[in-house]
Amino acid sequence: MLKTYNNKAWLLVLPVVLCVAFSAIIPLMTVVNYSVQDILGPDQKVFVGTEWFQLVMRDPELHAALGRQVLFSAAVLAIQIPLGILLALALPATGWRSSLSLVLLAMPLLIPQNVVGTIWQIYGRGDIGLAGAALTKLGVNYNYTGNSMDAWLTVLVMDIWHWTPLIALLAFAGLRAIPEAYYQAARIDGASRFAVFRFIQLPKLRGVLLIGLLLRFMDSFMIYTEPFVLTGGGPGNATTFLSQYLTQKAVGQFDLGPAAAFSLIYFLIILLACFVFYSLLQNAGPAEKAPH
């Protein structure tokens, strides 16, 4: 057995430890700190144990926001992933047409979230917005500030417009990485177009789609800016998702204890969901290996 006499290694990892401590662990600990105390003033505080957690867990408003959030993320994933794959399949593979479509497709990804919100806020207005006015002219009773269904659909369509290109770009890159011989073999085997998709393309895309799925899940589950700009969470609470609810608690009502408690729960939900997605997809088959 080798014995370690020299502990210099600890010194060498120290910078990283400090970085992680200051960037992640210490801020997280302050949240933990708030979540277990009732802070009445700068010098007055009481340890309350799990009281805030219990309070938050029983909050019907939060349950409603969580329900909306889950529904929203599910809709986002169910629409954006298949749509992104379809787009990637339809894109031209080579030449200037390919480059042009990729640039056009990537445009929405370059726009800041609050600008996206503003664009759609104007776009959907019944009086001056292109889409809103057109719908009104067509006789559709569309009003995203008044009708919760309309507000919901607008937020969803906006997110699809904004983020489906990400999935499409990932899937496009994944498709280009499939060696030509696979398609040739499939032709020799007499495979249909659908069989090629089902047995070659989809399995080979699993890696990039896993990344796309995780990114889209986390992002959509934490969505804040766009609905805040577009609908402000309304009408009523129709588009108040978790982040906005949390902000109302922490900044609006200054309920730091419950807000901190909920922050931790929020964080754990996302961590858990990502872990579940990851494990499910990893177990769907062994990891892809390059052919060479």
Binding site: A181, Y182, A185, I188, G285, P291
Partner: peptide
């Protein structure tokens, strides 16, 4: 190709990863 009754084996193995060996062989 699909109407020529030709079989081809490529430089690196082409298999359908998600299928069993049986399904691979049965595929054509």
């Amino acid at each position: 190709t699909e109407r020529r009754n030709i079989a081809q084996v490529f430089q690196f193995p082409i298999i359908y990863d998600t299928m069993t060996v049986f399904d691979n062989l049965a595929f054509p």
